[in-house]
Write a protein that binds this DNA or RNA. Structure first.
Lengths: 158, 158
DNA sequence: CTCTGTGCAAAGACTTTGCAAAGTA
DNA sequence: TACTTTGCAAAGTCTTTGCACAGAG
């Protein structure tokens, strides 16, 4: 944890940015909620617990800065809110997501999965792949169990 | 073209919706710009040429309706605007996109590519895949040619 | 006549920007 | 001092909603 903060601090410094208390608090929230795909608002509320005087604009600015530095990835599951996801240590590619259309849960897949597909795209379409976004929509394990007996009709948008 | 309008008309009727002139104009714009990934605003401006009296709200409502009927897919390339993409005839899966980070162009891939990956997700994670979104970010063919000699530094956000 | 659909304007949600004040090297 | 960062409030952008009116069956 401290080690990852240090690393981010160095990344900031290397571009002449500072790791201010507000930025550090923001990064800590992201580290403590790595699995959660927080929206800017979510981050703001959590950061406020550590640093009550922080402004929402600062959180937005910090998240944007971290995006530029590729410390976090900005993602969008189609609900009109940007979400922010910390890059894993040493991750070479952007991880994938499984969004459950029943309960809205979001799981992550770290495995690459796309290696072959990417070379196919490069060879067949002449497109030089730099990054990707892959999201599966479907029914998660626990909702499958429930749906066997129940006749749920709850759905999520998009 | 007329045949596809007819089909959509039937789909609407089957759910007790009508294909009003405004809705038809909207569908026609989508059909005529199938490759273009139009935003709601784009669609609005184009529909206005055919039906100047239409309101922006109607376009939004129509696009949402068409999304629900799965006539169009709502996508988001991370620029804060929803874009709308007509489903291809008989398409069983959502097609993929190649977004060029130099020039912003968006190309489509109709090939499935993910069949194997999906079964892997189903088997290994117990997640029942219903749909997917796959977007590659990178450099398109024509930008690659240019960048060989030029030292372009133009970038697109996210 | 009844119910659906429309246009307009207003409201809403999310995000960005301007600016003076505060902090840092 | 010179430069970066912050908080607040205001403005911006995209989208949805409320409502009276028009239209189809």
């Amino acid at each position: 944890m401290e080690h990852r903060i240090e690393k981010i601090k160095k990344q900031l410094h290397s571009q002449s940015y500072k790791l201010t208390p507000q930025r550090e608090a923001t990064v800590r929230v992201l580290l403590e909620n790595e699995e959660d795909h927080l929206s800017a608002e979510d981050v703001y509320l959590l950061v406020k617990e550590k640093a009550p005087e922080i402004g929402l604009a600062t959180v937005y600015r910090t998240l944007e800065l971290l995006s530029e530095l590729k410390v976090v990835d900005k993602i969008n599951f189609g609900d009109g809110v940007s979400r922010f996801d910390l890059r894993k240590e040493g991750a070479t590619h952007f991880h994938h997501h499984l969004v459950c259309i029943e309960c809205g849960s979001v799981a992550e897949i770290e495995e690459d999965l796309l290696g072959e597909v990417e070379s196919q795209v490069e060879n067949q379409w002449g497109f030089e792949v730099k990054d990707h976004r892959l999201t599966f929509h479907g029914i998660c394990k626990s909702c499958q169990k429930q749906t066997v007996t129940a006749t749920t009709t709850t759905h999520m948008e998009q």
